[in-house]
């Protein structure tokens, strides 16, 4: 009798946990489509001394948008023609096969944007990075340590967080200076 009760009780608990887990999964930010290349941020920052974010995200200091790297930025280091004519090159280049497949194409690497603002909010990278001098990690804290592209939705920054920082740094808190 007691055994049956224990089993029934554990089943109820397990069912409850499952419901909570499913709920959390549904409410979590959306699942992202896989990136065409499993880019490893940490590896690049470790291997290349002094590599800055703006080497790949080229417009972060000069434009409202940061930009995603074109294939030519990758080819600066991963020379697509370096191994031409080398019989052993195929094996070496295997892990770069996706990157190299764009070598003779007109199209660029179709990265998926993982972060963005609501359609009614204007956000300028150059204003935050160049004028305000914010570090990229202030909004993208885990990016330098990522070993693979994020698979779940982007970080969410609430308006309270924006306002808190704006008030602290005496930036404008006028609604129409961000909302459009």
């Amino acid at each position: 009798m007691i055994r049956t009760l224990v089993i029934a009780g554990s089943l109820v608990v397990l069912l409850g946990l499952a419901v909570v887990a499913v709920g959390a999964w549904i409410n979590a930010p959306g699942v992202l489509p896989p990136q065409p290349i499993a880019f490893n941020h940490r590896l690049h920052l470790e291997r290349v001394q002094g590599l800055q974010c703006e080497y790949c995200h080229q417009f972060v200091k000069t434009q409202p948008y940061a930009g995603l790297p074109s294939k030519h930025v990758c080819y600066d280091c991963h020379d697509p023609y370096a191994d031409d004519g080398d019989p052993e090159a195929d094996a070496r280049q295997d892990k770069f096969s996706v990157l190299m497949s764009y070598r003779d194409e007109i199209e660029d690497i179709p990265w998926h944007r993982v972060t963005g603002t609501r359609h009614d909010v204007f956000f300028s990278h150059r204003r935050h990075v160049t004028v305000a001098g914010l570090d990229c990690r202030a909004c993208h804290p885990d990016m330098p340590d990522r070993t693979e592209p994020p698979t779940r939705g982007p970080i969410t920054i609430s308006m309270d967080a924006c306002l808190e920082c704006h008030e602290k740094s005496k930036a404008s808190v006028d609604c129409v200076s961000c909302h459009r």
Partner: peptide, 17 residues
Amino acid sequence: CTLCHHRLIKANDLARY
């Protein structure tokens, strides 16, 4: 009408930069 204030945001952004 917002007096095209999105243009003001952009112009301010460039001027501050």
